[in-house]
Each structure stands twice: as C-alpha cells, then as structure tokens.
C-alpha cells in the first residue's frame, strides 16, 4: 500500500479511486477533520488559528499571503508524507478546489519536485475520456508497491 496524494487535494472522486485500489489517499479533508474534531480550539469554521499561517512558513516565505500559508499548513504535511501523486489538470471546481490559485500552484510545484512517481491527467470531458481516465489511474496505482 502506498500513500498517494491527489491534486486537487480536496477531490473526493480521486480519493475514492485511490482507496478502492487498496492504497492510502492523502487529501486535505482529513487534515481539516483533524482540526475540527480537535478539542479545546474554537476558531470556526475550520478551527484554523493564526498559528497555522506561521506553520505554513515551512513551505512559503513570510511575504506569501497568510491565506496561502494557512492552507499550506494543512496541505504541506500530506505532501511530505506522499509516496506517489495523481495530478489532474483543469479539474473544474466540482472536482475539488483549495479556493486559492497561488496555493494550487505551490502544491503542484512541491509534488513535482519531491521526486515521487506522478501521474498527470487531463480532466475528462465525456464518457469515453472518463473510462480512459479511470483506466490510467488504475494502471498507475497497480504499479505502485
């Protein structure tokens, strides 16, 4: 079983595909769940506190907007954990979105420069493309130890 990060890192469709193939999908939703279920913090809606943008300094400098650093405090650790990645280009907002394009760019960069196997895909626009899309993901995941 490999730990596979998906991009967009909020994509439940990709999460499902990875988990079905017996691997561990790394998605930001889990990091959010950990925060919102933590006791003793009351910073709605996500329980992100001003400490998170400071933790994000590990991934981006202080002159990078706080919203990017705050997001990176959640996404950065799962990139570090990842052993493989699936990146879907132009996924559309329904597939999942961090809400911030600068964060998306940084996430893609950090995944690509990590030196792990990466599957690059375009988002399917019809049924035939969707079948090929799923097949490519399956083949990629089967090739992972």
């Amino acid at each position: 079983m490999a730990k596979v990060i998906v991009y967009p890192p909020t994509s439940m469709i990709l999460y499902d595909l990875v988990e079905r193939m017996g691997h561990k999908a790394l998605v930001v939703s889990e990091a959010v769940r950990n925060l919102v279920t933590a006791s003793g913090i009351e910073s709605p809606p996500l329980n992100v506190t001003p400490e998170e943008p400071k933790k994000g300094l590990r991934y981006a400098a202080v002159d990078v907007p706080s919203g990017v650093r705050g997001r990176m405090a959640l996404i950065g650790p799962i990139i570090e954990e990842a052993e493989a990645a699936i990146i879907v280009e132009d996924p559309g907002w329904l597939t999942g979105c961090s809400g911030c394009s600068r964060t998306n760019e940084l996430v893609r960069l950090l995944i690509r420069t990590k030196g792990i196997p990466v599957l690059d895909l375009s988002y399917p626009t019809n049924d035939d493309e969707a079948k090929v899309f799923v097949q490519k993901i399956r083949t990629f995941l089967e090739g992972l130890k």
Partner: peptide, 15 residues
C-alpha cells in the same frame, strides 16, 4: 472574502 478562514482570523472578524 478570500483567505480569512485559512488565515485563522474569521473568529476575530466575527468578534
């Protein structure tokens, strides 16, 4: 807005 919840300041805005 954009980024307020991930900057950890939403609570401050509400307050």
């Amino acid at each position: 807005s954009c980024g307020s919840e991930y900057s950890g300041i939403q609570k401050e805005i509400d307050r």
